[in-house]
Structure formats: structure tokens, C-alpha cells
Nucleic acid binder design. Structure first.
Lengths: 217, 217
DNA sequence: TCAAAAGTGTTTAGCTTACACCCATGG
DNA sequence: CCATGGGTGTAAGCTAAACACTTTTGA
């Protein structure tokens, strides 16, 4: 095997992984153990292996750094501005995903944590920009895809789902209209169970086709 | 300067550049002068320099191979499956754009040419897949952005513009409804000129904010 | 019995679609 | 004067938005 006589940059994959908990959109960050930006928070990620697919690399480094596995990743954008890594040319292929808070348990030591999107610390490299672009894409996709269902655990109430929309879009939604719209999509069905609280029990719903993100309209 | 002790793949940028001419959506291809896939048609592109931005690389290699310059590029997707280049690991950051046929004149020798999207030759590498994804993205974006205006020369008639929509979406559009919709966007204005033919002269329009692609709704 | 969230329909406004004929020019 | 594409309005249907009260449970 020979190589092209061309420059070879380093390539990383990075993952912006969102969840919603206690009324806020959060992103999973890891603290850097080594320079550059030692001690800063950053998006999970790492260098690709030459034999692995980009998405596999994103999965692998996400699991290695946070313990999170088995999530569905969607490619976000590729960031390659010279100088974004102070040492050498590094191109970052960024992915994003949404997970239900209850089902994904990152390793819980003090180098990994969920941070509210609007009050996280300044991140290493250009990761602030990457996270911001991911958040923008997420909000845009709510309207024309079933991406929000990715935030949901196996069973959820319509109020839970509405809550996700309200937090990401930062505006209140009419309950009746929301229910009409989401039920008309025919993507979810009542599971037969109900959830109790100190109020009227709520019908639990589940996805008809788990794992599928489809486009609306 | 030191390097990470990590694998370094090769990275290319590639451009899917569309135009519309004689009732068909076309893509600009170049014939490969060297192995691998010598003699095959491929998307224009090439290896990045370590000091240049990804988009600059896409521009530079596009101009080098086709003579086309000064176009607006939008990042499409990054393709990195191992084995997509038979020699070594190559990651391709793909861009796409639309140009008015009249205004963009690729170098006209027999190694560069416009090919109808639905009857181009089998392409080198995974470039068939890249072109197909670009075409899909293009059709999707017609509905919620002003991307179609990118196909237009400085002055154009409403029929010209409608034609673009019909070709990309492969369906006929009602003339009156189309005009209402596009004029309501308030992105174009009559230039005052008219275009003659062997029929009633058509009002010429131009963009109010040339170069801007904005989102609708 | 109170607090808290679940659940439920109707009316209105705006937007989208369907649809057909006359106009201005060049040849 | 004929062929060709340019240009125009209205009605109907559908989708989206606004809007308030009753129900069921746990504490």
C-alpha cells in the first residue's frame, strides 16, 4: 500500500449529545485531562482509526469517554478551519443525537457531566460553535421530523412530549392543538398503561416504529 | 510544532455543481487523468492543503479542474467509509452549489462536461452516491429556502424560475399559484426590462439581495 | 376538599389548491 | 392571422390557531 503524496491532517469525530432534564436542554461534556485546553470542558470525541467508519469512530469515542452507548447518531457538519486546534491541522466531523435522560447513564465521575446549553462553561477548541450549531439544527428539525421522539423513553405521556417541544423552541404550545397534531402523525400509540401522580393519571404512549426518524409532510 | 501520535488519513473536498439547461438538471463532471479509476468520470475535487479552509479547498480544486470560480458553496456531507478509495483512507468533505448555465463557463475541453443527472456515466469512487445525496438535498431545499434563485442569471422571467422548480421536483406547477407564492416572498423585483420572443414580452425580474439564500417560513 | 395535571371540541382565519381565458408579440 | 408563451382572479377546501372548562387522582 502506498500513500498519496499529499498532506494528511488529523481527523476527529465529536458528538453533541442532548437530553432534557429538569426543564432544561442539556449537553454532555467531558473535562480534558491533557493539553491543549487541559482542564477545560469539551465535547466528547477523539481521533479516528484508519480502518473504522466515521460514525463508528463517533460511537467508540463517545462510549470511551462517557460510557454512553447504543445511540443513534446523525452527522451535523464538518469543521476544519486551520488553527482550530493549536497543535496541528485537525478536521472534526461532528455528530449529534438526543437521548432520554432516564435511559442514558453516563459514567458518573467528575470528568463527565450534563450542562445546561445556555450556561455551560466556555469550551475547548471551537466546541462552543459546534454545540450552538447543533442546537440550532435540533430546533429546526423539530418542525419537520420526528426527531423529538428521540428524547423519549420507551413510554411517555403527551405532556412529556409537549414539554420537549416547549423547551427546545422556547415557547409555549397549546395543549389541545399539540395533541391533535402529534396524534394525527400516527407515529405513537397508547400502551394501555397509565402513569400516576397526585393528579389524574396520564395515558402512556409508545412509538410504533422505535428508532425511526422520519420526515413530516 | 509536534503532531499527535494518531493516524492521519487523506482528506479531499469535492463539489457537486448543478445547473439546468435544455430541460434537464445537469451535474459537472471531470474525467480522471490518473489511476485509480483512470478515464472514469468523477466529481471535481482534490486534496486539501494543511493551511487552507475546507471551503477554500473546495473552491480552489473546483477552479483548477473546471475553471469555474466565484460560486457559493454549501457543505453537503462528509463521506469517510474505509475502502471508498482503493489506495488509502480518504475522507471526502462534499459541497454542492447551483449555477446559472449562462453565467458559468467551465473550461471546454473534453475532460470536463455537464451530464444529465439521470443518465450520467458510472462515476469513480462513491461519487454516484454523493451526487445522488446532493440531488436529494437540493429537491428538499427548494421548498423551504430560496436556493432555486441560485440557478438564475441576473435577470430572469417568472417562467424561467418556475421551470427550475418543475425540473428539480419533476412535476408541473400551476402558473398562477406559483407566481403568487414567489412574489409574496418579496425576494425579487421587476427590473423594468422585458424579454422578447415570438410571443408577448415577459417581465424580467432580479433578486433584491443577490447571493443570499434565506429560509422560508 | 384542595391542588395539580389530564383530557376534550368548536369556531375562525389564513393559506393552499384548482381552475380558464385574454394579451402581446414575431413570424 | 396564427402560434407561442405571458399574464391575470376567484371560489372552495383544508390546515392551523385561538380559546375554557371538566375530570381524576393523591395528599
Amino acid at each position: 500500500m502506498f500513500s498519496y503524496r499529499h498532506p494528511h491532517p488529523a481527523v476527529t469525530t465529536n458528538v453533541v449529545i442532548f437530553t432534557i432534564v429538569s426543564d432544561s436542554l442539556k449537553v454532555l461534556l467531558v473535562r480534558r485531562a491533557r493539553p491543549p485546553f487541559e482542564g477545560s470542558w469539551a465535547l466528547p470525541g477523539g481521533f479516528i482509526d484508519l480502518a473504522e467508519d466515521l460514525e463508528d469512530s463517533a460511537m467508540r469515542t463517545l462510549e470511551r469517554e462517557t460510557g454512553v452507548r447504543g445511540v443513534y447518531l446523525e452527522q451535523l457538519y464538518t469543521f476544519g478551519q486551520p488553527g482550530r486546534d493549536p497543535r496541528e491541522r485537525v478536521i472534526a466531523v461532528a455528530y449529534y443525537t438526543l437521548v432520554p435522560f432516564e435511559r442514558v447513564k453516563p459514567r458518573t465521575h467528575d470528568g463527565v457531566g450534563w450542562f445546561a446549553l445556555d450556561e455551560h462553561p466556555k469550551l475547548a477548541f471551537d466546541h462552543d460553535e459546534i454545540a450552538a450549531i447543533a442546537a440550532r439544527r435540533l430546533a429546526a428539525k423539530l418542525d419537520y421530523s420526528t426527531i423529538a421522539f428521540g428524547f423519549m423513553p420507551e413510554e411517555f405521556t403527551l405532556s412529556d412530549l409537549q414539554h420537549v417541544y416547549e423547551i427546545i423552541q422556547r415557547e409555549e404550545i397549546d395543549k389541545r392543538n399539540f395533541r391533535k397534531r402529534v396524534l394525527a402523525l400516527n407515529h405513537i400509540e397508547a400502551s394501555g398503561e397509565r402513569r400516576n401522580g397526585s393528579h389524574r393519571p396520564a395515558t402512556l404512549y409508545r412509538l410504533k416504529n422505535p428508532g425511526q426518524i422520519t420526515f413530516i409532510k
